[in-house]
Design a protein around this nucleic acid. Structure first.
Length: 572
RNA sequence: CGGGGUGUAGCGCAGCCUGGUAGCGCACCUGCCUUGGGAGCAGGGGGCCGCUGGUUCGAAUCCAGUCACCCCGACCA
């Protein structure tokens, strides 16, 4: 491709609304342009990389025995009503009506449609196992799209769905996908970890997330410093504390704590560490229950654990009015003593004695509080967020906390959708059996963004070869010098002939600008064609990563480049 | 949805407080000059100052509303 005929509009300055590096660099290299919040056009330079990622995904999915298909983006409401998600999914589901006033939605994921295909097409266990995937534009009306392609509303996703006769088969399919994902992200040049995750709204029994380690990541993950255990913090299990509470030594005492509403304020006021306080969160559920949750003062509630424990779809902190009604005090003074609510407590609370809680009375707290003696708890459970230093649930190691970008997610779904949509096959005995499903997603654009997050320097992007928009850039320094221009043209032709993806910077620009642009665009190899080298019969070959320069005789350049490209495309 | 912020040329910004015919840098176009790390000079094009309404002789500027975008939060009482 000739630069002079291509659409690349590099920006010297960073657009003000781009917060993270991958977003800034994608804008500065004109890979993407925003059309609306969370909705982008992919310009030619960006699309080339998107297509590379897609192609890698295709190759690895095909290698794992999956078959590509393509489902519609617009999905009739009936299918979603049948699965029950039309009413469950909430506002992220963009709903629309056609001219006949019939309901549709833009597919945020395609379990319904694929299961509909499966129930129509799959009749016999002999057709199993089967895995179908697509690479398609999804729409999720996110509360807060941000960070460019990292969290868009419209985005390209690879979603795969496996169908098996039984659990053992489904486990095998899951394992295959898990391995395919490892290869995919390795080929994309990513430093990632597969972590245990909550299966969330998609449903199903267990799942792993593929997390790319990056400061800008929106998710927190924990990993053990001694064993292989790694999990999303949402999921990270914490063992039941072993030590028992000390026997009560203090009397229950009410103290005045004027206007001290937060843990921090109360701790400071009473001159105690926050860990000696117990906070009482008043929570309401979608089922209409109001529940009190106790946590050590310096801990945070993990709402997913709470939801799972209560078996409900959502929990929410009660509003001021509700808190006043159930505790008799404004927010900030809730406590378990005398409280007429279900009380759940984190395991850790069981190890505490003589602690401080709210008095259910404005501007008062209780000290010397002990569970069992002063109040009863319905149950102790694992309800808090994991933090760095917590013990590993699997071994004697300690947990570390990282930021990560979720680029892929594999779920074992079980029969959730096959049952609600009646997708069955006949087994060997002629018995009707629901299909056992798995589903497997990869965010294509997010994978590309994550690759940029991990591969850049102060001058711009440093593409990993397999997903680079171009493999080589030929920088012609003197386009008006006939012999030099002719040599560059010849090289360009040779490289194209060798099947190399080459961007030929034939613009009539000054060398400085061309070098800066080449660095910003991050193409892995650069061949500089200038009068200086040419008079010695050599061209300069430079690696974008590391900056290593080699002088190569003109006649050998194409061969050397081809060899380097070939080498850097090999997996891991 | 709550809080904060910003809308002026493609991008980055000034002007607004104190109302008087819209500016700077980059980018873009023309010419000269220059050519191994974002050169220089000269000339030029491009704006319903987000939108609507109000105040005023007069509004980018003041007031009201509205829309869009960005950031933080939306669970830590």
């Amino acid at each position: 491709m000739r630069y002079s005929q291509y659409l690349v509009n590099t920006l010297k300055e960073t657009p003000a609304d781009a917060e993270v590096l991958s977003h800034q660099l994608m804008l500065r290299t004109s890979m993407i342009r925003k059309v609306a919040a969370g909705i982008y056009s992919y310009l030619p330079f960006g699309l080339r990389s998107i297509r590379k990622v897609e192609q890698i995904v295709r190759e690895e999915m095909d290698r794992a025995g999956a078959a590509e298909l393509l489902m519609p983006m617009v999905v009739p409401a009936e299918l979603w009503q049948e699965s029950g998600r039309w009413s469950q999914y909430g506002k992220e589901l963009l709903r629309l009506k056609d001219r006949k006033d019939a309901d549709f939605c833009l597919g945020p994921t395609h379990e319904e449609v694929i299961t509909d295909i499966a129930r129509r097409e799959l009749r016999s266990y002999r057709q199993l196992p089967i895995n179908l995937y697509q690479i398609q534009t999804k729409f999720r009306d996110e509360i807060r799209p941000r960070f460019g392609l990292m969290r868009g509303r419209e985005f390209i996703m690879k979603d795969a769905y496996s169908f098996d006769l039984d659990d053992a088969g489904a486990d095998k399919a899951y394992e295959k996908m898990y391995q395919a994902y490892r290869r995919i992200f390795l080929r994309c040049g990513l430093n990632f970890r597969a972590v245990e995750a909550d299966s969330g709204a998609i449903g199903g029994s267990f799942s792993h997330e593929f997390m790319v380690l990056a400061e800008s990541g929106e998710d927190a993950i924990v990993s053990c410093d001694a064993c292989e255990y790694a999990a999303n913090v949402e999921k990270a299990e914490l063992r039941k504390a072993t030590s028992a509470a000390p026997s009560p030594s203090a009397a229950l005492t009410r103290v005045e704590t004027p206007a001290r509403k937060t843990i921090e304020d109360v701790a400071l006021f009473l001159d105690l560490p926050p860990a000696r306080l117990v906070k009482t969160l008043i929570v309401v559920t979608d089922g209409g229950d109001t529940v009190a949750v106790l946590l050590r003062g310096d801990r945070e509630l993990n709402d997913i654990k709470l939801k799972n424990r209560l078996g409900c779809d959502w929990v929410e902190l009660a509003d001021e009015e509700t808190v006043l009604k159930v505790t008799g005090a404004p927010t900030g003074f809730a406590g378990p003593v005398g409280l007429k609510l279900r009380i759940l407590a984190d395991h850790e609370v069981a190890t505490l004695g003589d602690f401080v809680v709210g008095a259910n009375l404005k501007d008062h707290h209780l000290t010397g509080v002990n569970h069992g003696r002063d109040f009863a708890v319905e149950a102790f459970a694992d309800l808090r967020q994991a933090v760095a230093g917590d013990p590993c649930p699997r071994c004697s190691g300690k947990l570390e906390v990282w930021r990560g970008i979720e680029v892929g997610h594999v779920f074992k779904l079980g029969t959730k959708y096959s049952k609600s949509l009646s997708a069955t096959v006949l087994d060997e005995q002629g018995q009707e059996r629901p299909l056992v499903m798995g589903c497997y997603g990869i965010g294509i654009g997010r994978t590309m963004a994550a690759a940029i997050e991990q591969n850049h320097d102060e001058n711009g992007i440093i593409w990993p070869m397999p997903i680079a928009p171009f493999q080589v850039i030929v920088t012609l320094l003197n386009p008006n010098d006939e012999p030099v221009a002719a040599a560059a043209e010849a090289l360009y032709g040779e490289l194209l002939h060798a099947g190399i993806e080459v961007l030929f910077d034939d613009r009539d620009e000054r060398p400085g600008s061309k070098f800066k642009d080449a660095d910003l665009l991050g193409i892995p190899l650069r061949v500089t064609v200038g009068a200086r080298g040419l008079k010695d019969g050599v061209l300069e070959l430079q690696e974008r990563r590391g900056g290593e320069r080699t002088l190569v005789p003109v006649a050998e350049v194409a061969t050397v480049v081809a060899e380097r490209v070939r080498r850097s495309l090999q997996v891991g």
